[in-house]
């Protein structure tokens, strides 16, 4: 993936133009939130950086990694990902900030007791 967001992206494009000046997202995207390209996503017609993200996230990677690999600031990537999720291009695996659910804890307990 050396091409990444690649050669076609002009460095003279200011990041805020990609987000149309927005800095906030609808969902809180942590750096470790996993991003995955939605199955059947068709990014043709989407901006280049979004297409690059779609190519990048065929296997799920974290928001931080997306930012690093397409060389865009984290804040910009967050806004883009939020947009893309809204457009059905990517799926964001937002971890629950709540405690783990009972079913998971039961499995942990079961596993610990079988150690």
């Amino acid at each position: 993936m050396t091409s990444g967001a690649g050669p076609e992206r002009s460095p003279r494009v200011r990041p805020y133009t990609m987000t149309r000046g927005r800095t906030r997202t609808g969902v809180a995207l942590a750096v470790e939130t996993l991003v995955e390209t939605a199955s059947g996503a068709d990014p043709r017609g989407a901006p280049q950086e979004q297409q690059a993200i779609c190519r990048l996230c065929v296997r799920p990677i974290s928001v931080a990694e997306v930012s690093a690999r397409i060389a865009l600031p984290l804040g910009v990537v967050r806004v883009l990902l939020d947009d893309m999720a809204g457009d059905g291009l990517v799926v964001l695996h937002v971890a629950s900030t709540d405690r783990p659910d009972l079913a998971l804890m039961e499995r942990v307990l079961d596993g610990l007791q079988r150690l």
Binding site: R107, V108, D110, G111, L112, R114, L115
Partner: peptide, 10 residues
């Protein structure tokens, strides 16, 4: 990191 028998990683 502990791999639990219940297919979980703790």
């Amino acid at each position: 990191r502990i791999s639990l028998p219940s297919d979980l990683i703790l």
